[in-house]
């Protein structure tokens, strides 16, 4: 029997894989998006900046920024879920996960954003739910809110093509 890993080691491995997934993507940096992790649950956070404003008269966050945020949340959630299973089952670290091809992001097939109210000049949060995840296709729903979890300012649903893994598994 293997000795159980220490909490520190487990945390480091999980955070390492998440960072490897997120940190290399320039557009995520450009939009100032980060991910809060609680166990396997991710919350995407887009920190407000003036450059995200679409209409300065209201002022409101640009619909394109909102769409980008939601699509990013969906893509990372999908890749993260698949990587999570592999990571937890075989105790893979970030390098193993990368070698197996888990860090390749899915490709968006279509993405529909529903704008419920204007995005205020505040931080945005989003959580994605994978409704179906097959070997090739996945369907994901995303919800985004600002001050109040129950008052969504946007939601989206989209279909994605999953990248093939190197191990064929």
């Amino acid at each position: 029997m293997n000795k159980p890993e220490s909490l520190q080691v487990v945390k480091q491995r999980r955070d390492g894989v998440l960072a490897a997934l997120v940190d290399s993507i320039p557009y995520i940096k450009f939009l100032n998006i980060s991910f809060d992790r609680r166990g396997d649950e991710l919350t995407a956070v887009m920190q407000f900046e003036d450059k995200l404003i679409g209409n300065p008269a209201i002022p409101a966050i640009h619909g394109g920024a909102t769409a980008s945020f939601l699509e990013t949340a969906a893509l990372i959630e999908l890749a993260w879920q698949r990587a999570w299973t592999a990571m937890e089952d075989s105790q893979l670290d970030a390098d193993d996960v990368a070698a197996a091809g888990y860090l390749r992001l899915p490709k968006t097939i279509d993405f529909t954003v529903d704008y419920l109210r204007s995005g205020l000049p505040r931080d945005c949060y989003a959580r994605a739910r994978v409704n179906r995840s097959g070997r090739r296709y996945a369907s994901v729903h995303v919800e985004a809110w600002q001050d109040n979890r129950a008052r969504l300012f946007a939601q989206a649903t989209g279909h994605f093509l999953m990248p093939r893994l190197n191990t064929g598994g």
Partner: peptide, 23 residues
């Protein structure tokens, strides 16, 4: 380069294209 969504290929993130389309 700031709008790249896939660093391996240099392809622009769909969200940036979506922003242009929306505008």
């Amino acid at each position: 380069p700031m709008t790249v969504g896939d660093p391996d290929t240099g392809v622009v993130h769909g969200g940036a294209v979506s922003a242009l389309m929306d505008t």
